[in-house]
């Protein structure tokens, strides 16, 4: 990896750098070649890019369009086992949405369990990831290599097995943590079960999700840190800026796009958390207190065979994510224009 100082986020990277074949015309806004250049190239026929992309687009569209339409349609139907067998469908208008939106479970349980959980986890993931990246940047090459390997091990641990580890560690009565705290007299292992209560349940889930999510943030921000010119930090140090001020006023502004990318990607991931919740005791529907939008939708559709209602919940989750993604794209493309 070279250490060029220009840092650009996500998709914008792919777009902002044109191939050497494309000359940058003077009229090209934002560094993009004008249409004239493109037409004047004459080497590549217009259909070639689309031919090359066709197979990928077919697979992507096939997956996006059909299920998207289907979920949207289902959310306006009363679709249960009977309809699944007979193939008939009965339209119920906005009934499913009314039912979901007036259900106290949405406002008191599922939405907070999704949004507050995501907010806390994103904050912790980015904070821990940044701290680890700053530490990595300070280490010598040898220690950095070891720690990066350890971080990648945490990243490589499958969500399913990772969840089993955390559940087992915090298991009621017999878990390692419970036994240790019990032997210290801090909790009574016979009467305490952390999984039945909402707050401890999500605290354990947070430990799991942050452990799984911070490696990506750490390596990405480390890559960003490598692009910060040393002279700037040295100049700031000479001017008497401490470590925190150097980070706050030199590093942070330079890495703003990188922080934007890791924050928004983490947000998208943490809103969708499913496996880590579903596999915890009570997470598969037996404890309604710990449902989030994802598990609620899944359980309603698959376990209770109320596909219409489950689809309505899925539509709400998708709309929520759509808003976040729109903000993400706007941020990216806005930065590209700079």
């Amino acid at each position: 990896m070279t250490t060029s100082p220009d840092v650009q986020p996500g998709v914008a990277v792919t777009e902002s750098r044109q191939t050497p074949a494309a000359p940058s015309g003077p009229a090209a806004p934002g560094g993009r070649p004008s249409r004239r250049d493109r037409a004047g190239n004459g080497l590549t026929p217009g259909w070639l890019p689309w031919l090359l992309q066709a197979p990928a687009l077919v697979v992507l569209f096939g997956l996006l369009v059909y299920p998207l339409v289907r979920v949207a349609v289902l959310s306006f139907q009363d679709f249960g086992l009977r309809e699944l067998v007979t193939g008939e469908s009965s339209w119920v208008g906005l009934d499913n949405f009314t039912e979901v939106l007036t259900d106290p479970l949405l406002w008191k349980v599922a939405l907070p369990n999704t949004a507050v959980f995501a907010a806390v986890n994103v904050f912790l993931t980015v904070a821990v990831g940044t701290a680890v990246a700053l530490l990595l940047a300070k280490l010598g090459p040898w220690a950095r290599g070891i720690l990066t390997s350890a971080i990648m091990v945490a990243w490589a641990m499958p969500a399913v097995t990772g969840t089993y580890v955390w559940v087992y560690l915090f298991d009621a009565r017999d878990g390692f943590v419970m036994q240790t705290l019990g032997s210290l007299g801090l909790v009574d292992p016979e009467t305490t079960n952390w999984f039945t209560e909402r707050l401890p349940f999500f605290a354990i889930a947070t430990a799991n999700v942050v452990h799984h999510g911070f490696p990506f943030v750490a390596v990405t921000i480390l890559a960003g840190l490598m692009t910060v010119p040393k002279e700037m930090l040295e100049a700031a140090a000479l001017d008497g800026a401490g470590a925190w001020r150097r980070f706050r006023y030199v590093t942070m502004p330079l890495l703003k796009p990188v922080f934007a990318v890791v924050t928004i990607l983490s947000t998208i991931w943490d809103f969708k958390v499913f496996t880590q919740i579903y596999l915890m005791p009570g997470g598969s529907g037996t404890n309604r207190e710990v449902l989030n939008l994802g598990t609620w939708s899944y359980i309603t559709a698959i376990s209770q065979n109320r596909y219409g209602l489950g689809a309505a919940i899925a539509v709400l989750l998708t709309l929520l994510l759509l808003v976040i993604t729109a903000v993400y794209l706007r941020t990216l493309f806005k930065q590209e224009e700079l």
């Binding site: 997956l63 939708s297 899925a314 994510l321």
Partner: peptide
């Protein structure tokens, strides 16, 4: 590229029902 990103955003859970069907 936007479509690709939209797919990455899409919650897998929302696709399970229709795909199952």
């Amino acid at each position: 590229l936007s479509i690709a990103l939209a797919i990455a955003m899409f919650p897998v859970v929302a696709l399970v029902g229709p795909l199952f069907d």
